[in-house]
C-alpha cells in the first residue's frame, strides 16, 4: 500500500497528464458520435453571448449585400400575397407548403418557418457548425432544417440550448441530405468531401439518368426533416464512375457559406406523426414474421 502512495506521488504530474489527456479524448470521441458534449449546453450559453456581441460588429461589413438579398426575398414574397391574385387556384396553394387532409377545402400547415440570425459560423474545418440566436425557449428542436434568406439549404439543427442552437452545416463530412434533381425528380444524397467549401457532392444518381451542367438540385420530397423543393445548388461538374454505375457529381452550393447571416429555421409539424407511423409499420411487419 505504501509503495502505491510513493508511486503515485512520484509520478503525479505524469498521471494527471494522462488523466487530462484521456478526459479530452473521451469528450472528443463521444461528441463526434452523438453531436453532443459534456457541458455543451452550458458552454454555448457563454460562447453564444460572446458570439452575439462580435456578430453585432460583423454585421456592418455585410449590410449592403444582406439588404439586397432581403429586398429580393421581400419582392418575391410580395408577389405571393393573395391580394395579387383574383382567384387562388389549387396549384398556387400547393406551393405554400400545405397539405390537404380530411377536409379538402381546409389547408393544413405542414411547415412552420422561424427567422433566426447566425452568430457563429466557420468554413475552414472538416466539421463546420453554425450557431444561431434561437433556442429551446423559442421552440427550436433538433432535426429542424435551416435555410438562408434566399431559401437555399444551409444545414440541420443538431443541438439546442435555451437561447442558442447549433446547426450542422452542409459543409460537414458527416452531413447526408436527401436531394433530387429538379428536371426529373431522381433522388440522391448530398454530401461534402471536406475540401472546397464552394462545392458539395451529389451521390447515388445512376448513369442512365440524363443530366447536364447547371441542372438545379433541390431538397427531396422524401425527407422528414427538410421542406421539399428548396434549392441546394447547381451541378458544376459531371464525372462518371464506371465501376459503380453512379455519377460523381460536383454541385456548386447555392449558399455562400462565408456570408450566411439571416436564416430561417423550418419545422416539419408532422414529423412526429410520420416517424410514429414509420415505427409502427416496422413493428407490425416484424410481428407478422
Amino acid at each position: 500500500m505504501r509503495n502505491i502512495f510513493i508511486f503515485i506521488r512520484r509520478y503525479f504530474v505524469l498521471l494527471s497528464f494522462l488523466a487530462l489527456q484521456a478526459f479530452a479524448l473521451w469528450i472528443l470521441f463521444t461528441y463526434n458520435r452523438f453531436h453532443r458534449a459534456v457541458g455543451l449546453g452550458v458552454a454555448s450559453e457563454f460562447t453564444g453571448s460572446v458570439n452575439a456581441q462580435v456578430d453585432k460588429v460583423d454585421d456592418y461589413f455585410h449590410l449592403r449585400e444582406e439588404n439586397r438579398r432581403v429586398h429580393q426575398v421581400n419582392d418575391s414574397l410580395m408577389n405571393l400575397v393573395s391580394s395579387n391574385f383574383a382567384q387562388v387556384d389549387t396549384t398556387a396553394r400547393a406551393i405554400t407548403d400545405t397539405l390537404r387532409l380530411t377536409d379538402s377545402t381546409r389547408d393544413v400547415r405542414r411547415y412552420l418557418w422561424r427567422a433566426a440570425k447566425v452568430v457563429y459560423n466557420s468554413v475552414n474545418f472538416e466539421k463546420n457548425y453554425l450557431q444561431i440566436n434561437r433556442g429551446a425557449t423559442e421552440g427550436i428542436r433538433e432535426n429542424m432544417a435551416v435555410l438562408n434568406s434566399d431559401g437555399a439549404l444551409v444545414g440541420l439543427v443538431v443541438a439546442v440550448s435555451p437561447n442558442f442552437s447549433q446547426v450542422m452545416s452542409l459543409l460537414h463530412v458527416q452531413s447526408r441530405v436527401p436531394a433530387s434533381l429538379k428536371n426529373n425528380n431522381v433522388f440522391g444524397t448530398i454530401e461534402w468531401s471536406g475540401e472546397d467549401p464552394r462545392f458539395l457532392l451529389l451521390k447515388g444518381i445512376s448513369m442512365d439518368v440524363k443530366l447536364k451542367k447547371g441542372d438545379s438540385v433541390l431538397t427531396s420530397i422524401y425527407s422528414y426533416n427538410y421542406p421539399p423543393g428548396f434549392l441546394v445548388g447547381r451541378i458544376a461538374d459531371i464525372k462518371t464512375d464506371k465501376a459503380s454505375g453512379f455519377y460523381n457529381l460536383k454541385v456548386r452550393s447555392a449558399v455562400n457559406f462565408n456570408a450566411v447571416q439571416q436564416v430561417f429555421v423550418v419545422e416539419n409539424l408532422q414529423r412526429t406523426e410520420q416517424l410514429q407511423l414509420d415505427e409502427a409499420t416496422r413493428q407490425k411487419m416484424e410481428q407478422k414474421k
Binding site: V13, L14, F17, L20, Q21, F23, A24, L25, W26, I27, L28, F29, Y31, A37, V38, L40, A43, S44, F46, T47, V50, N51, Y120, S122, F125, K127, Y129, Q131, Q166
Partner: peptide, 19 residues
C-alpha cells in the same frame, strides 16, 4: 474548443504541449 464546437480536440493538443 467550445468556440469551435470541437470539444476535446484542442484540449488534448494543449495538454500535451503543457506537459
Amino acid at each position: 474548443d467550445y468556440f469551435t464546437m470541437t470539444p476535446g480536440l484542442h484540449t488534448a493538443a494543449c495538454v500535451l504541449i503543457a506537459y
